[in-house]
Write a protein that binds this DNA or RNA. Structure first.
Lengths: 396, 396
DNA sequence: CCGACTTTCTCCTGTCTCAGGACAAAGTGA
DNA sequence: TCACTTTGTCCTGAGACAGGAGAAAGTCGG
């Protein structure tokens, strides 16, 4: 199960590997065009990569009018594990070196059960994926957790919604269990990396990725790199004040964005509306299940329930208000909206857009797309795979 | 007057020049310790720099227990012009290659008079500085303007407070007039660069620099580099909403920060207070001069006037509210407060601190200094010199 | 089927970069 | 005066690298 994955010996090899991963060309000649190296030097580096087994030459490509080229590919057996721990569920996926998802499992789970229980679950899911035949072992794993992370060490710090994880050596522990390199990051940052690699943010260098799940967070990408802040808490926008002296929030302050919107707030507001008799639709659902979630509001809204639509619109407006400020401040080239509540879809998006376009500076919004994420639940695990892949594909 | 300044031939030479500029050591041996190069290679590069005249070897340093070293210094005759155009005044300064200010002039002037009039003024001030003997000519100039700039071209774009400047080719025009390379940036970004180079932010990589002048802006530094955003408007925080449906703002929206604080809003509020009879102190000053400015409020406050103190505190609280959100979002390692209203001093700082420390997340504020800028009016011109120096000290 | 042309890949050689050792120069301190 | 330290210079050999020559393998038109 333990694998001795080779690492690129220098920056040239690292660039080649990433180029291959990100959909670059496959022949020596075309790789030489993309990378700033002579054919001779390039040939040497590729030969070395072939020796280490990091890339393979399998077969010949079709001719483009001359001699046929050898197909250079990343090691086909390389397998990465992407883990995305949310507040209420866990996603685990296996990818190849190109970060294509070969298998993906999702399981409800409360992160507050603590790292030991969650790890057991994650390892179990990884074992299931192995058993299904998509992987024999893992060359690396990336894992996202719903809270701030001291990135270099891979340790959560003071995470509000998962107090039991504070200081738990996630990176070290998982690395021990899996016998491969592991990198840890905030789940929102991974979503941003996922959308950047395979989603809607492919060609953008500076963008924001707002994840609305149980809470609300924001991934910040500057010059193509995730920005994590001084203590790893950058993007923690859930507790920005949306209303001075507003609703009390679980954090102890008043008027925080999360007091008004996000999966938790939305569910609570929906239950209130059901009990107050403001929405027959929601009341019926509450009767049925005993509690409500964001998905119930989404369903009610798409059934035409006015109260549900109002809840979504109001939440979107609040969120848009905060995003408007961030847009003025950060002047991004794109804003991606993602997370569990994307089921609320275009009603939410329209409310956010209206607010941002109205409130931010014209110069900042003039050419600013605000769009839903493309990858859905795959964004997090793809980002996780990308994270560890960046690590593996950098000089040892 | 036109000068043919040499440029470093490669990245090594550029690094050496910046190291010397930023207070690095002066002997070949010690430079070799800081830079990752062998003594032999280093000697070659320094010899080349000596040939081009970019550095000189003047005399011997004191012995440190062995052979005395030659003092390697940046060309002593190199002169940079730093220009900081504010809303209501212009600063022009001359520095040497180490960015030490050799001469500094300040002149009141309304930026709305347009680029032609302002340029005439700037060139006149530059000529005065030359006449005073601190410079014979200029090897480069940096200039800051109070609005968004398309940085690569050095052209202001859609600047709200200086409409006549929209699209004016500042960089090209000034370069023609002065006969040397010119770089243009937003004034707030330059202030941030100034404080980073010679001020309070010397050792910090990620920080915010809030400038409260006539308006309010924010310089964003990520990894030691100024972040300018997609269209050059990053940091434009004056029109972030501080109060939903609040006071009308000149920009057309309601509740913007600048409707509550900044030099313009403070002056207006002070005049209101003087007329309403809420402050005898301010009324007396109004009587005297006919209008009030931020400095009058500062004077009244230090004379103990309660209303003036209240105005400052309230403005600081509003500003702190916005900064609190930015701190949660950006998680900086330092927040610098600067600009014309720093005369309001610690009353203002205390109000901002209180609000930020109360409202932002503990993880983000736990170790976050919020301090006044060190350089005062020298910050902008120092940053401007630094900007052009970075350009000159990069490979041609 | 043949020759002209294209594309891909390999091999070779000369140039340039660079590190580190040897050593000279210039100082300190006992 | 001698042992030792620091600085600076010179030299040599190892490695990085570009680009030309040319082989290999294909297309295409006549």
């Amino acid at each position: 199960m333990r694998r001795m994955t080779a690492r690129p010996a220098n920056a040239h090899q690292a660039r080649l590997l990433r180029l291959l991963r990100d959909g670059g060309p496959n022949s020596r000649a075309q790789l030489g065009d993309e990378i700033d190296l002579s054919r001779s030097k390039l040939a040497v580096e590729i030969d070395r990569l072939l020796e280490t087994g990091l890339v393979v030459a399998d077969g010949l490509a079709a001719s483009r009018g001359g001699r046929r080229s050898h197909n250079i590919r990343l090691a086909p057996g390389l397998r990465l594990l992407g883990v995305d721990i949310g507040a209420t569920s866990v996603d685990v996926a296996v990818t190849n070196a190109e970060l294509e998802i070969l298998g993906h499992l999702n399981q409800p789970m409360d992160v507050r059960e603590g790292p030991v229980a969650v790890f057991e679950q994650v390892l179990d899911m990884a074992a299931k994926l192995r058993a299904s035949g998509v992987a024999e072992g893992f060359d690396g794993a990336g894992i996202g957790v719903p809270g701030p992370v001291r990135f270099p060490e891979g340790v959560p710090v003071a995470p509000p919604i998962m107090p039991g994880w504070d200081g738990f050596p996630v990176r070290e522990a998982l690395s021990q269990e899996l016998g491969c390199p592991v990198m840890v990051d905030n789940d929102v940052n991974l979503m941003a990396m996922g959308e950047q690699h395979a989603g809607v943010a492919r060609s953008v260098k500076d963008f924001l990725c707002v994840k609305i799940g149980t809470g609300i967070g924001c991934g910040i990408v500057v010059g193509g790199e995730v920005y994590r802040g001084t203590t790893g808490s950058a993007g923690d926008i859930g507790h920005i004040q949306a209303e001075p002296d507003g609703r009390p929030c679980a954090c102890g302050n008043h008027g925080c964005l999360e007091a008004y919107f996000g999966g938790a707030a939305l569910a609570r507001d929906a239950e209130d509306a059901a009990r107050d008799g403001r929405s027959a639709e929601l009341a019926a659902r509450l009767e049925e299940v005993g509690s409500l979630a964001a998905t119930d509001v989404a369903a009610a809204a798409s059934a035409g329930d006015a109260t549900a639509l109002d809840l979504i619109r109001e939440g979107g407006t609040r969120t848009g208000q905060v995003i408007a400020g961030l847009v003025s401040f950060f002047n991004p080239g794109l804003v991606v909206i993602g997370g569990g509540v994307t089921g609320l879809g275009h009603t939410l998006l329209a409310a956010i857009r209206t607010q941002v376009y109205r409130q931010s500076l014209p110069l900042a919004t003039g050419n600013l797309p605000i769009v839903l994420g493309e990858l859905g639940p795959a964004a997090g695990v793809t980002g996780a795979a990308r994270l560890i892949s960046d690590h593996l594909f950098s000089p040892a």
